[in-house]
């Protein structure tokens, strides 16, 4: 599992690659720490290379969202595969995030 964060056109873009499962969650949680400092910038979670997400991964996304909202930022999700889409649907996460 690999996470890279870049600033693009005034937005923070976090790109996830691989399987975000229980085993990968601890490291990924550390990797997304820079997103905490998002004041004034929107966040894009790029899932185009994300193969799998478990509840541990969803919690990381949820924490990013809570933190961003508290700072007045918006969070967009992009590039979801069918499997990720299915997980978002059955957990109601579809209603929490904005999608591009």
């Amino acid at each position: 599992m690999r996470t890279t964060i870049n600033e693009l056109n005034g937005e923070l873009v976090a790109a996830f690659e691989g399987r975000l499962d229980t085993a990968a969650a601890i490291q990924t949680e550390k990797d997304v720490q820079p997103l905490a400092d998002c004041a004034g910038k929107n966040i894009v979670l790029d899932c185009s290379a994300l193969e799998y997400i478990s509840s541990s991964g969803l919690r990381i996304f949820l924490n990013v969202l809570k933190n961003a909202k508290a700072k007045g930022s918006r969070v967009f999700i992009t590039g979801m595969s069918d499997d990720i889409n299915k997980v978002f649907k059955i957990t109601g996460f579809m209603n929490l995030f904005e999608f591009r």
């Binding site: 478990s54 509840s55 969803l58 919690r59 299915k86 997980v87 649907k89 059955i90 957990t91 109601g92």
Partner: peptide, 12 residues
């Protein structure tokens, strides 16, 4: 029981 886990299990 963790709600998210239960939802994923039931949905799959």
């Amino acid at each position: 029981a963790d709600e998210l886990s239960v939802m994923i299990i039931r949905g799959m």
